[in-house]
Design a binder for these strands. Structure first.
Lengths: 173, 173
DNA sequence: TGCCAATAATAACCCTGATTATTATATCCA
DNA sequence: TGGATATAATAATCAGGGTTATTATTGGCA
């Protein structure tokens, strides 16, 4: 039905992402977790106790967006919000038993879908697609930080806190 | 800041699309047209007089989504809605002088941004990215229609009308 | 010490997109 | 000819994402 396929990379990319997300949500209506929530839990599970602002910067989301997500996810029993003992402004986030249990099966389904989306592409082509998208994301993140990527002073970045090196270590991998 | 880059194609794709869109909207706040509206006008300009349902199926969007868009765009003077003389349920859509005038400059800016997003990729890599995304979109569209792509009876498809061949001709290219 | 700038979270509001349900027509066919 | 069926558009409602502005705190520094 797409008689006149997109000739522009940008719109093609946006369309692909939307279609993928739509399919995911359609196929997982029985699951008590959306794709966005899955992504958040996946990140959080590797960074238990992190604050919302830091989580936002990991996900390249606005802090407000994360705040709303956490609201809903707390209500759904997927996340726990605990007062940070060292900072009365901040809350620490933790996954719950429920969300941890959902992580593996949801990832499974997601990967199956991602695979279906790539039917017809060779492994070489898939790797190329993956690598190219990583470049795109890196370009857009860099540009987001400042005009000159080298000039990446912390305060300039949207909602991101200057992060201590040991914290960075926790986050890596 | 993305210390732990996405290892999953799907989330990488969704992230790339979101970042791209965000940058676009940020850089075009002075323009009286959003990226979604640009895409709609681009399609409509090649299919003047089309109905909302048909436009929705061209864009792979739900009819309701298009309906709301048209509401806002009519209010913004970007689209005209005319009663279809042959079908009292339907309205025909037309671009306006205003939206036609915006099409070229907006496309220009969009292409510039898309180009920036691809910095670091060779032309060969860009072509591969483009081709791979087209495959992904095709896979997801086919799967959306029905389990078996061959079994694509019209009534099964979300909101899409069975379309006369001459109309298809108009839409192509 | 005491004030001012940076930060964490969030409220209010807008756009995009989807799902479900309605209403008004149009069609098809018995 | 009529009635079942399909289609066009849209109202209501929900999730995802963003921007701007507020409120508490924290922290640095004069």
């Amino acid at each position: 039905m797409k008689q006149d396929p997109q000739t522009s990379l940008g719109f093609l990319l946006v369309d692909a992402a939307r279609l993928l997300r739509r399919r995911f949500e359609q196929e997982n209506r029985d699951m008590p977790m959306t794709s966005a929530q899955l992504q958040i839990i996946a990140r959080l599970s590797k960074n238990e106790g992190i604050g919302q602002a830091a989580l936002a910067s990991l996900l390249e989301l606005e802090p407000m967006t994360v705040s709303r997500h956490v609201d809903r996810m707390v209500a759904a029993g997927l996340v726990e919000r605990v007062q940070d003992p060292n900072d009365r402004r901040a809350r620490q986030l933790f996954t719950t038993e429920k969300s941890r249990a959902l992580l593996a099966p949801m990832r499974e389904r997601a990967n199956t879908l991602f695979d279906e989306a790539q039917v017809g592409l060779s492994s070489k082509e898939r790797e190329a697609l993956f690598a190219a998208l990583q470049v795109v994301v890196r370009n857009l993140c860099a540009a987001d930080a400042s005009a000159n990527p080298a000039d990446d002073r912390p305060g300039r970045r949207t909602g991101s806190a200057p992060m201590a090196d040991d914290v960075k270590q926790d986050i890596l991998s």
